[in-house]
Computed example of a mutant assay.
Amino acid sequence: MIDKTSPMPLYFQIEEAIKQKIDKGEWESETMIPSEREFAENYEVSRMTVRQAINNLVNEGYLTRRKGKGTFVSAKKIEQKLLGLTSFTEDMKSRGFRPASRLISFQKTTAENRVAKALEIKEGQVIYEIRRVRLANDIPMAFETTYVPADLLELNESHIKQGSLYSEVENAGFVIDYATQSLEASISGEAESEILEITKGAAVLLIKRQTYLTTGRPLELVQSVYRGDRYKFMIDMKR
Rank of each mutant, 00 (worst) to 15 (best):
V73M: 03
K238P: 03
T146N: 07
E123N: 13
K21H: 10
L205A: 10
M92F: 09
P9K: 14
L63N: 01
K208G: 07
E120C: 08
N56C: 04
P218F: 03
R51L: 00
Q80Y: 13
K69H: 10
I14T: 09
A150V: 02
K67G: 02
G189A: 06
E38F: 08
S87E: 05
K208N: 14
S224P: 02
G163I: 00
T215L: 08
Y43F: 15
Y62N: 03
A142V: 04
I176T: 08
V115R: 08
L63Q: 03
K232Q: 14
I18E: 04
N113P: 05
E120K: 15
D177R: 11
L83N: 13
E38Y: 10
E184C: 10
Y128H: 05
S188Q: 03
S101R: 15
D23A: 14
S74T: 10
G124R: 13
K4N: 11
T214S: 14
R95P: 03
E194Q: 12
L165H: 00
I2Q: 09
T146M: 11
F143L: 14
T86C: 05
F12G: 01
L82F: 08
A185D: 14
E15S: 15
I33Q: 06
E15D: 06
Y147V: 03
P7I: 10
E79H: 11
A75G: 12
Q181H: 01
I198M: 11
T109M: 15
M32F: 06
V225L: 09
